[in-house]
Design a protein around this nucleic acid. Structure first.
Lengths: 222, 222, 222, 222
DNA sequence: TATGAATGAGAATTCATTCAT
DNA sequence: TATGAATGAATTCTCATTCAT
């Protein structure tokens, strides 16, 4: 009973409009749970609200996911799976090293911007010391394929003389993510403290430009 | 009833002793609450546990802080006050522009490392859209004095020809914070996914070096 | 729909095979239910677990037995039917009166020992004031044939001068049962309180000997 | 927080009619729980109903007793404590050996008859393999003082020539208890099966007489 | 100032049972 | 006959908060 809606099923359903569709139900629950967890955190999320969001009986959540913890785990796994899927579509190796880095910074920024739930889910996961990833069979799949790609990009840049050498792709990846993540995840406190709205279109453009400058400024041979 | 132990007080107490008790109790509660909120988040924190941690009666928490929300607000304010206090001690303007930036990166890293509760508190605050900072009389005091200092440093660096121009001190401040914050706040998920411990002494040193390189690489005129 | 696997059936089945399946399923369910009820009592038994034990779909239980109460009733009836069947095989009238009584004490003891589920089922039934026996068509069959036999044995013993007179066979039957029942049914609390294991081979032998002595000591003319 | 109402308290309450009386509340809860457990067993008992019976807030039960299991444990302990207290009042050693045994049979019978909850509580405890007595600090106090007394009585009887020798007081105690216990605890199924009411005044008198005959018939030297 | 007792609303989870095929 | 999906009504337990002293 670990299917989560998006996977293929063995038995074809009687009709497309079938009310009783295990796969679809699981998917609906997962989506509702993702929203609820994103909005309230693991501790603040309510199983009742998840059921309501999903338009399904609360009991069904337990039928498919056992308990709140497992549900969170499933949500988290799916969130990772999704971003990894998107990353795979980037085809960075078709670009020049500098262009590739720009593209990555931009992608990261845009993905976080459009998927704020991803940020709060990760925050919740970290609050709980990532124990929801422990023993996950899919944890390997969550390792970003970008690390390898990034290594390749850095190597190419170094060879063509544009990039400095000795850059750890993991460090760079974490830095690229961190520059976007912190700005967006902490946008509320930052906005409150600086007394200025960090989410206006202008502010967002400035941030993206700044981040590109930071990353490129770092890697480019001076 | 907004005293929080170490701050100035409005009400004249019956006796010095009683006052000190009250003062100490508030401080004890705040510390206990900070730990509990840091460990479990706002939603996961338990008033019972806070009382237990503080070794004080639960009712007393309500006596001093009205409710959980106000208590969190107080904890949050104090956390900001504390880091600002530390920042004030930095005396960055005594250093060369490049040295000052290095020092700031290092300070930020070290502070976050030594005060992990600060990170989770901010995460909680942001999960709740920073409404705990709304209407805070102290919110102004929370604005980092470093922004002005940073502007000064950047200006000096530009003038002496070592730094590039056109750098927004707020953006830079956010970037410096973000580079440390994300690594430390998300260390559990990152460690799980990369399959390597990001908190070994070696890893920490590498991260600090990397961050200095990134920030300096960015600001230094090439 | 009152078949229970091994009993005669009213409805002609479509095919022999299908019938045997249905028959077997009912039997499997009954056995699983008996074990579950024995282990957890009526209130603590779980329909889910019964289905799981039986390796059959939960819905099937309802198909055959309507609800939990009816299922318990069926289990209880079968339990009685089984012990009565065993009792019928005793052929006590072939033995001398005293030997017959010894044999009966021994049989009761052994049956309870080997069928601990019988004890807990009866306890559950009594907790519910035996309402599961109400209106049972088979309740007559549950009346022990031993009562009549016991009357005959007592009469023979009285006539041959070995037994005292005026013994009510029902009282004697209840006493024989009670001596074994209490020891075995309450063995856990008794063991805990006396601080000695009442179920060692030695303890069991001593108990059986003691019970024979008690019963014989009572009936034998002194 | 393990007081249970009947014990002495440290602080004298402000008034006898005080509403907030920890001791009294615990006692009230215990009594309500005892009745509920006796009526429905551990599995069938409802915390809601216990609160309702007690006329107290459900939450208070958890405040004092942690959970259902601990509550049952407390009820069980108190039940044992109570019967032991009554047993202590018997003063059997003032009677002749035969009279003492008669008195004990009678007491056991009467106590069980007047405290049917004791029987169902023990049944529940045994269904759960007496794990509620495990680690009980009071389990020692639950050991009947009668065992020693019974040994003394048997010894006296043997010495004065009226009793046979070699009788294990534990076996005898279990037998005396079992004769009453089974009749009363299983009275519903027995009544149903024999088709006769075992609880009429006449039936009860006959049972008591029979049990005395059985026990005395056994111990008396023939 | 300080505290143990008490509570109502809610929260996760469970359970017998039914639906639809 | 057999089964996976679905549900409503509990049920245990929790939690922030208030009472009374």
């Amino acid at each position: 009973m670990v299917n989560y809606g998006t996977m293929t099923r063995n038995k074809a359903p009687a009709t497309e409009e079938r009310l009783r569709d295990a796969d679809r139900s699981q998917g609906t629950i997962l989506a509702a749970a993702r929203d609820e967890f994103a909005l309230h955190g693991l501790g603040g999320a309510r199983m009742d609200r998840i059921a309501e969001r999903a338009g399904l009986n609360k009991r069904l959540i337990y039928y498919y996911f056992d308990d709140k913890e497992q549900l969170f785990r499933a949500v988290l796994e799916q969130a990772y799976l999704h971003i990894r899927e998107e990353e795979r579509k980037l085809n960075l190796l078709n670009l020049s090293p500098a262009q590739a880095l720009r593209r990555l910074v931009e992608f990261t920024w845009t993905y976080y911007l459009e998927h704020p739930e991803f940020l709060t889910l990760l925050n919740s996961a970290n609050l709980h010391k990532a124990r929801h990833l422990e023993g996950s069979l899919r944890v390997r799949e969550m390792n970003s394929p970008l690390i390898a790609t990034l290594g390749e990009i850095l190597e190419r840049g170094r060879k063509d003389g544009s990039f400095r050498g000795g850059i750890d792709p993991v460090q760079l990846y974490v830095s690229i993510a961190g520059l976007s993540y912190f700005y967006l995840s902490n946008n509320h406190t930052l906005s409150a403290i600086f007394g200025r709205d960090l989410m206006t279109a202008k502010a967002r453009h400035e941030r993206l430009a700044h981040m590109c400058d930071v990353i490129l400024g770092y890697v480019l041979r001076s």
